[in-house]
């Protein structure tokens, strides 16, 4: 076990060393710290991590789906639903269910919900062979609406104080949630690199024919990625309300765009099979820094959206060009 951990760390470090995105990220970090007023405070650095928690967890979810050459647009709504339902179940607010269920119940419930959504999506995509874009476009719409219907659009607040166990603790002033996110990144990257499932996922996304020939169960993997995405999205939503102690109809609104920015910066290919979570983490952090800079400069939300839209196009273009030109430009010889 020790040796394996060492190899993992070693590999990760070599990834970071050999990789462009982290280089770019650090460059950006230094640039902002030096040139932008107000950027280089410790609280801000903590915020860079803190603000990337939810997008980060959703990015893990989206990465798995994209690696399998599918797409999931509904994770934002699954997160929203989980958050809203958690408050609805547990809080004592006027418009809540009044059940005042305990914290652990809500977590299990939303994870179950995420699993269910994953199963349904998987069924539609694998069995009925409906395009995953269309399925998740629809679920994007109706999952959130489902939650809003339950709450009639009211904002719910007042979670029990047990939730503070999740939202309050900090280690070296860094909130617990950040570590939860980093832990999830590490865990899922490990699966991608060191498990049979991970290799099979990569092969499936890269070459469907080869996967069939090698006896890889395409259905099993497709179901799995959607279920993983659903569960991660639910966890993300649960964490959101834990942090904010309540949920409005606009919870997690437009997160899907930010998730794609992070995933694209992390150079996950929408054609499947390419990319890893270390880069996606860099993408999340870079996005976080950019958002902070926007607040410092008080950019209007419209400008922010314009910028993010353009950013998506630029990054997607860079990815497309580099994919064509043989992605080994980015991936060095040592590759696991």
């Amino acid at each position: 076990m020790n040796f394996k951990k060492l190899t993992f760390v070693n590999k990760t470090l070599s990834e970071i060393f050999n990789n462009n995105i982290w280089l770019f990220g650090f460059f950006l970090f230094l640039l902002f710290s030096v040139t932008i007023d107000g950027f280089s405070t410790r609280e801000n650095y903590i915020n860079i991590l803190y603000h990337s928690v939810f997008i980060g967890i959703l990015a893990i979810a989206e990465t798995y789906v994209l690696l399998a050459k599918r797409i999931d647009l509904s994770i934002e709504s699954t997160a929203a639903f989980s958050g809203i339902i958690t408050v609805w179940l547990c809080s004592n607010s006027l418009y809540s269910s009044g059940l005042k269920l305990p914290i652990w119940f809500s977590l299990i419930f939303v994870i179950g919900f995420g699993l269910l959504i994953g199963l349904i999506t998987g069924f539609l995509v694998v069995r009925l062979k409906v395009n995953s874009f269309l399925v998740t476009l629809a679920s994007y719409l109706f999952i959130r609406a489902l939650a809003n219907e339950i709450t009639q659009g009211h904002t719910l607040t007042g979670l029990p104080s047990t939730f503070l166990f999740v939202s309050e603790p900090t280690i070296f002033n860094i909130p617990l949630m950040v570590f939860i996110m980093l832990g999830l990144f590490a865990f899922f990257e490990y699966i991608l690199r060191f498990t049979v499932f991970g290799k099979h996922l990569y092969v499936l996304g890269e070459n469907k024919n080869m996967a069939a020939k090698m006896g890889i169960n395409e259905a099993k993997i497709s179901y799995s990625v959607f279920i993983i995405a659903g569960i991660l999205a639910s966890i993300a939503g649960w964490l959101i309300v834990a942090k904010e102690d309540g949920a409005s109809v606009f919870i997690a609104q437009n997160y899907i765009f930010e998730v794609f920015v992070a995933v694209l910066i992390g150079r996950i290919s929408v054609n499947g099979g390419k990319g890893n979570l270390i880069d996606v983490l860099a993408g999340c952090l870079i996005l976080s820094m950019i958002k902070i800079v926007f607040v410092i400069y008080a950019f209007s939300p419209y400008f922010t959206d314009i910028f993010i839209g353009i950013l998506i196009i630029i990054i997607a273009s860079i990815n497309a060009i580099s994919e064509r030109k043989n992605a080994s430009v980015f991936y060095k010889k040592e590759q696991s």
Binding site: K199, H200, Y202, V203, G205, E206, N207, M210, K213, M214, I216, G273, K274, A327, Q335, S336
Partner: peptide, 14 residues
């Protein structure tokens, strides 16, 4: 029979 995105060892043992 081969995938570009994983290394030789992984390819062999798929």
């Amino acid at each position: 029979v081969f995938a570009n995105n994983i290394n030789i060892l992984s390819n062999i043992f798929i």
